[in-house]
């Protein structure tokens, strides 16, 4: 019989559809996993309310569990407490940075350029290529980069 820990392990292999460098568990959007009598319930919370990835993630979770032989799968959405970037795991933060995305930082801006590590950076725009990111630029290597903004 499948266990919740096993399910979490499987979920950790599902990439975020828009930032495939991190998994859905790295992002901290999987709030609960319950495995009972062969049926599995996964509770997820959306990142941004309009983020199109949310629906895609629910579908991927459903498909991944069915592929592993779980026939009774329920993916529930839960709004409260609202998702916060504090729930991104340490591993997730490291993966973001190695993928060229500066991880969220409580100071409100990136700690350093994810490419050359310079701390001399400036904001281009509070909004970026997805709802969760802002656009920044490095004053030293001059490269633009994404910053995963705090929420």
């Amino acid at each position: 019989m499948v266990t919740a820990a096993q399910v979490r392990e499987w979920l950790s292999e599902i990439p975020d559809p828009e930032i495939p460098a991190v998994s859905v568990t790295d992002l901290g959007i999987v709030r609960e996993v319950e495995a009972r009598d062969g049926s599995v319930t996964v509770v997820v919370t959306p990142t941004y309310s309009g983020c199109p990835a949310t629906a895609a993630i629910s579908l991927q979770i459903d498909a991944a569990l069915r592929d592993r032989g779980i026939s009774r799968v329920e993916v529930q959405q839960r709004l409260s407490p609202p998702w916060t970037t504090d729930w991104i795991s340490e591993e997730g933060r490291a993966k973001l940075e190695s993928h060229g995305i500066a991880p969220p930082n409580p100071a409100g801006g990136p700690r350093r350029c994810p490419l050359c590590r310079s701390t001399s950076v400036e904001r281009v725009s509070q909004f970026g290529s997805t709802p969760c990111k802002a656009q920044w630029r490095c004053r030293d290597c001059l490269e633009p980069f994404d910053y995963f903004k705090c929420l």
Partner: peptide, 16 residues
């Protein structure tokens, strides 16, 4: 940048 910012704002609002 403004195009992206406006699209993201719209997306948030539609989600809400």
């Amino acid at each position: 940048e403004e195009d992206i910012a406006l699209a993201n704002t719209a997306l948030d609002l539609i989600g809400q």
